[in-house]
Structure formats: C-alpha cells, structure tokens
C-alpha cells in the first residue's frame, strides 16, 4: 500500500515574514534531498520551492508519513521548522492530485492565472528526476499536472488578460500597432514604473528606446541599460512625431506634454497612430489629447482599472476551473487505484 502525501506551506497559510524564514536556497534544497533519501519508508519525493511556497510531495509505504516528516523537519536545520509546521498544511491521496493540478495551472498563485509557476513545477520535477527520487506515481502525477495546466489555459479564461501595468500597456500597444518590433518608444523621466513598462515592451520585441529626463545624465544611464539613446529634455518635443509610444513618468507638478505639442506631432505623423501612456501622478500629459483622432492616451488609473478588470475576469473563472480540475484529479486517482 502506497500513500501519496503533501506537506506544504504557501502564501495562503503563511504571511510574508514567515515565508522569509522558511524559504530554502539551493544548498537547502540539496540538503533536504539528501536527508529525505535516508528516510526508509519514503519511496518517492519531490520538492517544490518558490518564493510563495515550499511543498514536499511524497509517496510513503507507511501510514505514519506525517509523523515521520514532522520528525525529520524538526532535525532539518536549513529552515525554521517551528515556523514551517505552524503554517503547514497536509494533504493525502486525491487531495494532493487536485492541489498540484491547481498549482500548475496557476489557480493557487497569488496572481491567479500566472504562468511562471508551471515552469517552476517543471523545474522541481526535473530536479527530482535528476536525483532519481521520483517513481511511477509521482512521474504520472507531475506529467498529468502539466497536461491539466495546459488544458486549463486553453479551455478556460484563467490566463486571459494581463494583470500588471506593464503587460496591460504591452497588450494595448499590440492592439494599436500589431508587431512591436518596429515601434519607437520615448520615455520621459527615469522612474521605476516607466522602466518596468519599457522592460515589458522590450520583452515583446520593441527595439528602439529613447529616454529623456530633466537630468541628462540619468537619461543617458537608463539609455545604456536599454541599449537605447538619450535626448535632451529641451529637444524631445521637436522629435515627438517620430515616436509611436510615449511613456511619461516624471514627478513634475506641471504638464510636461501640452495639447499643442501632441497636436503638432499628430499632424506630422500623417495618420499613423500615437500611443501615450501617462504613468505620472500628478499627470504629465494634457488629457485633452485623448480627444485627438488617432491618439490613444491612457493614464495610470486607466491601466489599473484594466488590470483589475482582467483580474476579476480571471477570478470569475476560478471556481468552474477548480471543479473541472477536481474531476480530472478524481479520474486520475481512480485510474491509479485500478492499476
């Protein structure tokens, strides 16, 4: 008789300060792997270690797996065992299957529907395969969880829409320009929010980045980081029409881009659209520009509202997706039982 179990701790059960104390570094994972191999009743195991969760998946021959794991953790020095056990949850059988299906699908993530977790689960499985700690049951479980994640992403709306400001901006830019590889970006200001947005745009193919700032040195430094160019703050308005996407994120108290500046640039662009992103508070861009034909102006509130709406849409899908994954988990578990 083999018992599938899960002992874990995640952002659902432990606050950030506790997760900081129980997170494992690479050496800690290696140490845990070695020590778990010494447990005689443990047939298979895998460790999923991310910034939001630490989970031990195992297959034991005994019915006292929980007690053995607790006892081992109390001896394990790489983490604060008391903190871990105080926030830990325990699952067995089909509950483990359902949990891993939900984790792989991003349903259990802090940002519902995110895809990074699937890569982390795959890494955890690859590490377990490398140290030969997985056997028939965990092999099947992880493979099925990857299939479940793919199914959830394809057949439900949990991954639909972006939930970060940067990715929302990218989505909007894509709906205006299509392929972003030829789009030219101008960033006004050297703040972190603007920088993060440019990183998102670059990840989708934007190559040409120009930066301007009241302090030219700061603009030049950031330009080097993005392999772009810097333009003097006094000159950028003259070149405004050459940019497709303008991101403004300064801490200025007055309007940086006046309606007239944008109107002139729009006329020079001869019908090519302009995407203006105002991430500043107070706002940098004259809001009347939104009325201009072929000018799309979004401010911080607009982008946040879209991100929140996307998140709400995803959350609406969570319950039905969970039900479907539970049915899949049940089928998988019954299949294992019959073999």
């Amino acid at each position: 008789m083999q018992n599938l179990f899960l002992l874990g701790c995640s952002h659902h059960t432990a606050p950030l300060e506790v997760r900081e104390r129980i997170s494992l570094n690479a050496e800690g994972v290696q140490a845990a792997t070695q020590e778990l191999s010494a447990l005689s009743s443990l047939r298979e195991w895998a460790i999923l270690n991310t910034c939001n969760r630490l989970e031990f998946y195992g297959v034991s021959e005994s019915n006292t797996a929980r007690a053995e794991m607790d006892e081992w953790l109390s001896r394990f020095s790489a983490l604060d065992a008391n903190a871990f056990l105080a926030s830990a949850f325990w699952q067995e059988g089909v509950g483990v299957v359902q949990h891993l299906f939900e984790v792989s699908s991003g349903l259990d993530s802090q940002m519902v529907g995110e895809t990074e977790i699937l890569g982390q689960v795959k890494d955890a499985y690859a590490d377990a395969v490398a140290c030969k700690s997985v056997g028939t049951m965990l092999n099947q479980l992880f493979q099925k969880s990857f299939q479940a994640a793919k199914w959830a992403r394809t057949h439900t709306g949990i991954g639909r829409g972006h939930v970060s400001i940067g990715n929302v901006a990218v989505e909007l830019a894509t709906r205006i320009f299509g392929n972003l590889s030829k789009s030219r970006i101008l960033i006004i200001g050297t703040g972190e929010v603007g920088e993060a947005t440019v990183q998102s745009l670059q990840s989708r193919g934007c190559r040409s980045v120009t930066i301007t700032s009241r302090t030219f040195g700061n603009a030049a430094d950031l330009a080097r980081k993005f392999q772009g160019s810097a333009v003097a703050f006094t000159d950028f308005r003259e070149q405004l029409d050459t940019f497709d996407i303008v991101i403004s994120a300064t801490d200025a108290n007055d309007i940086i881009l006046q309606f007239e500046d944008i109107e002139i640039a729009r006329a020079r662009r001869r019908g090519h659209p302009m995407f203006l992103i105002d991430l500043a508070m107070p706002r940098d861009i004259d809001q009347r520009a939104a009325l201009l034909e072929n000018v799309f102006l979004y401010n911080l509130d607009d982008l946040s509202a879209i991100a929140n709406e996307n998140l709400r849409q995803r959350q609406k899908e969570v319950e039905s997706c969970k039900e479907s994954l539970a049915a899949r988990a049940r089928r998988f578990w019954d299949g294992i039982g019959s073999t």
Partner: peptide, 15 residues
Amino acid sequence: RKVSSIASFFPSISQ
C-alpha cells in the same frame, strides 16, 4: 477602454 471585449482578439488597428 473595453479591454475584455471581443475586440481584444482582433488584429491591431494598424494592421
């Protein structure tokens, strides 16, 4: 700002 409409599946306005 109707981001979740069917238009989100459409090609870009430039295309």
